[in-house]
């Protein structure tokens, strides 16, 4: 099943020249599924890098312009297009000169995939919240608030 999904993502990735990787993660940057070719730097697909967008999208939502939906970074050799598709994060890593508009369009092609995967995240978040409640039964309010940023 996951293989089918990966081959679909690979197909989508091939539609944009010089797009090297697509990753779908949860809000903390934990990878749920990813595809990449050999041009993508290995370190760019790890949680340490992908989690930065999770934090920054949260901060960018506080600029007084409503919720953040996308952040695009141009580096001297690469560009990253990162999309906040609540409860998921969608990351694209491409060459600097790749067509950014085409990459942004891929979000629509991935709508079905995102819908399926967001079910996974919601399910697991529920399980984890339940586990937390069992662990600290009397202390729901504070516990919930403190942990909420990690769960959602």
């Amino acid at each position: 099943m996951t293989e089918d999904l990966k081959s679909y993502l690979n197909k989508q990735m091939a539609t944009v020249d010089n797009l090297h990787a697509i990753a779908i993660t949860d809000r903390d940057g934990v990878v749920i599924i990813k595809v990449a070719n050999q041009m993508a730097p290995d370190t760019a697909l790890r949680q340490a890098f992908l989690s930065v967008f999770g934090i920054m999208t949260e901060q960018a939502s506080k600029m007084g312009m409503g919720n953040n939906s996308k952040i695009i970074n141009f580096y001297d050799r690469f560009q990253t297009v990162q999309i906040n598709a609540h409860p998921l994060l969608l990351h694209f890593i491409a060459d600097r000169d790749a067509n950014t508009g085409l990459i942004l369009e891929l979000e629509h092609a991935l709508a079905d995939v995102l819908q399926d995967i967001s079910k996974v995240v919601t399910m697991i978040a529920q399980v984890r919240r339940q586990a937390d409640a069992d662990l600290f039964p009397g202390d729901n309010t504070i516990n919930h608030c403190i942990r909420s940023r990690f769960i959602y």
Binding site: A60, M65, G66, N68, S69, F74
Partner: peptide, 10 residues
């Protein structure tokens, strides 16, 4: 090296 950042909010 970072050159440019574009941020889209609602």
């Amino acid at each position: 090296k970072l050159d440019c950042v574009l941020v889209e909010c609602k």
